[in-house]
Design a protein around this nucleic acid. Sequence first.
DNA 1: TGCTGATATGTAGACTGCCGATATAAAGAC
DNA 2: GTCTTTATATCGGCAGTCTACATATCAGCA
Lengths: 118, 118
Amino acid sequence: MTDENFDVQGFARDINVLLVLATLRDGSKHGYQIALDVETESSGLFRFRHGTLYPILHRLEAEGFIDGSWSKEGGGRRKKVYALTAGGRAHLEGRRAHVGEVVARLLRVISGPGEAPA
Amino acid sequence: MTDENFDVQGFARDINVLLVLATLRDGSKHGYQIALDVETESSGLFRFRHGTLYPILHRLEAEGFIDGSWSKEGGGRRKKVYALTAGGRAHLEGRRAHVGEVVARLLRVISGPGEAPA
DNA sequence: TGCTGATATGTAGACTGCCGATATAAAGAC
DNA sequence: GTCTTTATATCGGCAGTCTACATATCAGCA
């Protein structure tokens, strides 16, 4: 059913959050890598500006959905590697289902009289 | 193809615009009626606050996508009735296709390894 | 007749969140 | 030695929604 009330702002925010969490599903990554992977996996459609991505990562970490830790291997360039937490995984699945539902309903409402979207 | 670059803000904005334009497809309506119809057609999921709707209508009218005219029939309560223009209809179809494409790609990227969305 | 609630439109200010610019810093190329 | 790429971070501007306020008509009810 997914009877949460819809919020346009939160919906747009969810998109970015889902992209981040989804790429972290196949392994821990640092921010810069997440941006590259999202762009690759979406064939260049979705791309993060770092002024957008890093604040999202900080927020997700504060909310407990991802777990960040500085890797100082080799003493070289600093990287903050993020891993999906159990809560983050649950959030990902929940939001994904919600977004899917909202999207299905949206397409139904805005679809023309002739066509019926699956 | 739809190889426009994706923009999160514009996407959220598009949703509201599409909801308005889509309800106007089955006849001219005034703002308040649009809000009611969107809520009804989406089974209460999407709903406009008037502080959101009216600015959108003004903008759409300024952009030439809808055509507003005051109806003073009966001398009673004033209503501004909006009709879809040819440009508005074209915009609706174009944005709808674009949103559909973006949504399909989004669902593909954020879908789990096990499931393949149609 | 006065009260309330639904209809109907509009604006102003607060709030939120993305985007572009700027800053810092190390690694590798040339 | 300098330039580009990798890597993270923050700040100001801007766009757009939301809450609240403002205005006005009409129907129902007591």
